[in-house]
């Protein structure tokens, strides 16, 4: 989808979130000198094209007790990865799940799944559940625990024009 200036203004206005008021779209529309109808029509188009995945809450994992996480990585048979990846991505404790290229000989894993839990033990239990699902299609696996955040900046859309 090609975003025009108005779309970019809408994205910019919503990057910090939607106002928590009874009529949030009317409030945002007024701040941009648009009608509510124009705003929601454009938001619907952005949803349809995938620019907006959904309008929802981002929970704080840590505050909800999910203090442990691990990047689990799996060497899965290529011809089974589409089917199995969908099963792993659907697990409630898996947040990001992707097929990525191997980098042989240094890196043999082609499936990445971020696992969250309330303790290291829980992350290990959940890892064991993934292992069961992958079954015979699995050749090797590992888990990479983060030991330090080295940089964290928000991914922000750059202003253009």
């Amino acid at each position: 989808m090609t975003l025009d200036t108005t779309d970019r203004q809408i994205i910019e206005a919503l990057q910090s979130g939607l106002p928590l008021v009874a009529e949030p779209y009317a409030e945002v529309a007024a701040s941009l000198n648009l009608s509510e109808d124009v705003l929601t029509t454009r938001l619907a188009a952005m949803k349809a094209s995938g620019v907006i995945r959904r309008i929802a809450a981002a929970p704080n994992h840590y505050k909800l007790g999910m203090t442990a996480n691990g990047m689990t990585v799996w060497d899965v048979e290529d011809d089974k990865i589409a089917e199995l990846g969908a099963l792993i991505g659907a697990l409630p404790f898996v947040t990001h799940c992707y097929e990525r290229p191997r980098a042989l000989p240094d890196w043999r894993y082609n499936l990445f799944a971020m696992v969250h839990g309330s303790s290291r033990e829980e992350v290990e239990e959940k890892r064991a559940r993934i292992k069961d699902i992958l079954g015979d299609a699995l050749h090797a696996s590992d888990v990479l625990v983060s030991t330090r955040i080295l940089k964290k900046t928000g991914l922000r859309l750059r202003k253009r024009g």
């Binding site: 994205i11 919503l14 995938g50 907006i52 959904r54």
Partner: peptide, 25 residues
């Protein structure tokens, strides 16, 4: 609305709004 504001102010929610797919942009 009141509960959602409280959850956000107290850090249970980091954000409420559209999730943008930057790659799609």
């Amino acid at each position: 609305l009141e509960r959602t504001k409280w959850l956000k102010e107290n850090g249970y929610l980091t954000r409420f709004g559209p999730f943008f797919d930057a790659a799609a942009m």
